[in-house]
């Protein structure tokens, strides 16, 4: 079997595909790559189906050794990628011969790079997906030095560079929000949301935690547990909102004031601590 060896995982390297939607009624989060377009692009560049599992690398530092001939591609924020120490480029297919070593440096902007490999990573699937869910502990273990990753059968021909260079994330994110379902639990919810929020270092794959002027409730009391979606802005008693990402709990008891536009999720997943987020609420 073709394999790929992990030499160094960097701060965090997780196997992710498009997740396991459809099991929320059993308490299982959707999970999957946070920056879905980046994983799809990486897969396309190496000739894979969109749903193949790749590696989500947090802040780079990922070093891999090819143990078989394979094609890889790295996407996400612009990042320095080397093969045996020589620059190889990101956002394009790279062919690796056995024993060649690929290294992804730390990106200067953004958080998460995606590596796809021809055939995809063939770790064991759980509930139909190879995604690591950090909330539930479902899916392949976080990668560590010495891991040998099995690869699937190559499916197609690498398609070459089909998108211009990576986007650089803007210094300030403007995020459209649809109010509801519980905006009526807040005084002037639109006005309160439409200010500058700052991404905090407590953010992770479960949610983006924001700092700013705490949101004031107009209604006290508790909400019986209700379902949550990716992108839901939940407001705990502190008044500081959390934007739920792919590994979010399936139900919760704090009011959800609104939901971010799904097209904003990839940028939110790349937002570093300190990034300013401005919500643009619409009814």
């Amino acid at each position: 079997m073709r394999t790929l060896e992990v030499v160094e995982p960097g701060p965090a390297a997780l196997v992710e595909d498009l997740g396991r939607p459809g099991y929320a009624h059993l308490g299982v989060p959707p999970s999957g790559a946070l920056d879905v377009p980046a994983l799809r692009l990486a897969n396309r560049l190496v000739g894979n189906d969109d749903g193949c599992a790749g590696i989500e690398s947090l802040l780079g530092g990922l070093v891999l050794r090819a143990r078989s001939s394979c094609t890889v591609a790295v996407t996400g924020p612009p990042v320095r990628v080397t093969v045996d120490g020589r620059p190889a480029g990101s956002h394009l297919p790279i062919h690796l011969r056995p024993e060649q070593v690929l290294e992804i440096a730390a990106p200067q902007t953004g958080l998460r790079c995606y590596l796809a490999v021809s055939g995809g990573i063939a770790a064991d699937a759980e509930l139909g997906s190879r995604s690591r869910d950090v909330l539930s502990g479902i899916g392949p273990q976080p990668l560590k030095a010495g891991d040998v990753l099995p690869l699937g059968e190559p499916q197609g021909i690498p398609t070459g560079e089909d998108e211009l260079a990576a986007r650089r994330p803007p210094a300030e994110l403007v995020v459209p929000v649809l109010l509801g379902p519980r905006h009526d639990w807040f005084a002037e919810p639109a006005q309160q949301l439409a200010v500058a929020w700052t991404v905090t270092p407590e953010s992770n794959r479960v949610g983006l935690r924001l700092d700013g002027t705490p949101l004031r409730r107009s209604k006290d009391g508790e909400l019986p547990s209700e379902g949550l979606v990716t992108g839901a802005i939940q407001v705990p008693p502190s008044g500081l909102p959390v934007v739920f990402l792919a590994d979010h709990p399936t139900t919760g008891g704090y009011p959800v004031i609104g939901v971010v536009a799904p097209r904003s999720l990839p940028a939110l997943a790349q937002a570093r601590p300190g990034t300013t987020v401005r919500f643009r609420p619409q009814a």
Binding site: L178, G180, P181, A232, V256, V259, V260, P262
Partner: peptide, 9 residues
């Protein structure tokens, strides 16, 4: 209750 573009509560 509306819950984003793709869900309802």
């Amino acid at each position: 209750l509306p819950y984003g573009p793709d869900a309802v509560l």
